[in-house]
Amino acid sequence: MHRKCPECGGKILGRSDKKFCSDYCRNAFNNKLNKDSKNLIRNTNNYLRKNYRILERLNPKDKTKTTKSRLISEGFDFQHFTSIYTTKTGTMYYFVYDQGYLPLENEFYALVKRTS
């Protein structure tokens, strides 16, 4: 019995548990499988990545202040974040992974880094 490569249909030679005929076919198959099939997912990940880099660059010492206009000029998008942390007093921190921001008065923002 000959096994066939799920990518190209070619004959598989070698180990009995081998699934693809070549590294090329294995990579091509997995790239198709893992490709972001929806633009929404890809775009959201790009926004999150960009927001994270901006917060990380503006907050090198893990706690600082900045302005809304500075965040906007850097290209920050306030609609994309990964989580919200609400303190006991009701203060809401918005996080992009471990980088967070807290809206303050007069369009200022406190930038923080969550520590484990």
Score class of each variant (00 low, 15 high):
residue 1 M to D: 12
residue 1 M to V: 06
residue 1 M to I: 10
residue 2 H to L: 03
residue 2 H to V: 08
residue 2 H to Y: 06
residue 3 R to A: 02
residue 4 K to R: 13
residue 5 C to M: 05
residue 6 P to H: 09
residue 8 C to P: 12
residue 11 K to I: 08
residue 11 K to R: 08
residue 11 K to C: 00
residue 12 I to P: 01
residue 12 I to E: 00
residue 12 I to A: 01
residue 13 L to M: 01
residue 13 L to Q: 10
residue 13 L to W: 03
residue 14 G to E: 04
residue 15 R to I: 01
residue 15 R to W: 11
residue 16 S to W: 12
residue 17 D to I: 14
residue 18 K to R: 14
residue 18 K to F: 04
residue 19 K to C: 05
residue 19 K to R: 15
residue 25 C to P: 09
residue 26 R to V: 02
residue 28 A to N: 03
residue 29 F to D: 11
residue 29 F to C: 14
residue 33 L to V: 01
residue 34 N to L: 07
residue 35 K to Y: 03
residue 36 D to Y: 13
residue 38 K to M: 07
residue 38 K to V: 12
residue 40 L to C: 06
residue 43 N to S: 12
residue 44 T to Y: 05
residue 46 N to H: 12
residue 48 L to W: 02
residue 50 K to T: 14
residue 52 Y to N: 08
residue 54 I to S: 06
residue 54 I to W: 04
residue 55 L to S: 08
residue 59 N to M: 03
residue 60 P to F: 09
residue 61 K to L: 09
residue 62 D to M: 07
residue 62 D to Y: 11
residue 63 K to L: 13
residue 65 K to V: 14
residue 66 T to Q: 13
residue 67 T to Y: 10
residue 72 I to N: 09
residue 72 I to T: 09
residue 74 E to I: 05
residue 74 E to N: 11
residue 76 F to G: 10
residue 79 Q to F: 14
residue 79 Q to P: 02
residue 79 Q to L: 15
residue 81 F to S: 04
residue 82 T to Q: 05
residue 83 S to K: 12
residue 84 I to F: 05
residue 85 Y to H: 04
residue 85 Y to D: 03
residue 86 T to S: 02
residue 86 T to G: 07
residue 87 T to N: 04
residue 87 T to A: 05
residue 89 T to E: 10
residue 91 T to R: 08
residue 94 Y to G: 02
residue 95 F to V: 02
residue 97 Y to S: 07
residue 98 D to Y: 08
residue 99 Q to P: 02
residue 100 G to R: 10
residue 102 L to E: 06
residue 104 L to G: 11
residue 104 L to H: 14
residue 104 L to P: 07
residue 104 L to N: 14
residue 106 N to V: 12
residue 109 Y to I: 11
residue 109 Y to Q: 15
residue 109 Y to L: 08
residue 110 A to K: 14
residue 110 A to Y: 13
residue 111 L to E: 04
residue 112 V to K: 15
residue 112 V to R: 14
residue 112 V to N: 12
residue 112 V to S: 12
residue 113 K to T: 15
residue 113 K to Q: 15
residue 115 T to K: 15
residue 116 S to G: 11
